[in-house]
Nucleic acid binder design. Structure first.
Lengths: 182, 182
DNA sequence: CGTTCAGTTGACTAAGGTCAATTCCCGTGG
DNA sequence: CCACGGGAATTGACCTTAGTCAACTGAACG
């Protein structure tokens, strides 16, 4: 994601002045379900996962946040609602963060930020719709193949548990799919 | 969705001048998969469905478009891509439509439309994320109960086939769920 | 070397799909 | 008013996919 072309130098400086740097140790949380998200994070280095916990206590990975992407429970952040999503570091992670007030101030201070926020929402929508269509249209094995295609570098950074959870299956099932594909 | 508070009278008039009215007969299509969406529609009266067809030819309903909501394959419309989604009228339907050029002109003509488009994208993102989480977290029966809760009026306008397809199950399974809930 | 934890394998279960037969509902024509 | 034709919904028998649980393997590390 690169919006910088649209942003005047002046505005960019404003953003950089107000951002903070945050380090999150492996296994620590950037956000817990039940909190109203205070911050929007940009992943400089490291890896996070966004996940749900269902009512029988199973963790379900929703998304992995790699370098140069945003770490945020976006719906809850926008609407100032309690998040249903947890955000946890899978590796030691460095984030640039802004708080909601900063986000809101920027939006109201210059049209360029409206444009950036629109592009961002559109991009996240497209991502979400892609995921939804995969869940509706593909079985576990096809979803795994798609995952390999979309995130080839993630396979080596994640253990089987996390990939299976992302695919909506058990580690045992993923193991069988992998055997099957050899 | 009501954004009119944000829109100056002048701008609203511009929109109204450029909108067209379109009637779609029951079972006819507003959009076919494979087309780049030319238009964004606003449902005045009637009912549409957005659906995918998977690679074994099964139709899968993605969303129902009721009165006062937008009928559009949004991702494809934004990105000028071929739609993977079909949009078909389930009842005789009246739409207000604007073409992509109008949408684009509005965006570039006044900041208020940037804001409206941002709000719209955010809203659609939230909707999409909700659907995704239901697919990941709930079983067929729970999804049906959620559907009844979210769209109580739709149950009477749709036959079982369409509801089942929305839930990602077969009509037979939905029949069993319904018996089970009595 | 043992311990530990990720991954594999096997046997069984459960949710939902498939296919076919049957019933229900409703509109139409006699 | 009744009979019947056709699509929608139901039901039954069986199948497939993925889940569950437990035992086992194997590599990594102290």
């Amino acid at each position: 994601m690169n919006f910088s072309a649209d942003i005047p130098r002046e505005e960019l400086r404003k953003l950089l002045r107000r951002k903070k740097i945050m380090y999150i140790k492996k296994n620590d949380y950037f956000l817990q379900a039940g909190e109203v998200p205070k911050r929007l994070g940009y992943n400089v280095s490291g890896l996070l996962r966004l996940f749900y916990i269902d009512n029988s206590g199973i963790e379900i990975n929703k998304h992995f946040c790699q370098e140069k992407t945003l770490a945020v429970s976006y719906g809850a952040f926008l609407r100032r609602e309690e998040s249903k999503i947890y955000i946890q570091a899978l590796e030691d992670t460095k984030l640039l963060v802004i708080d909601y007030k900063t986000y809101d101030d920027l939006l109201n201070s210059h049209i360029c930020w409206q444009k950036v926020a629109r592009k961002l929402a559109e991009m996240l929508f497209v991502l979400e719709q892609k995921r939804e269509s995969e869940l509706l249209l593909k079985n576990a094995q096809e979803r795994y193949i798609q995952f390999l295609h979309d995130y080839p570098n993630l396979v080596n950074r994640l253990n089987q548990y996390h990939i299976a959870s992302y695919l909506g299956i058990t580690p045992e099932s993923l193991s069988r799919i992998r055997t099957n594909l050899k």
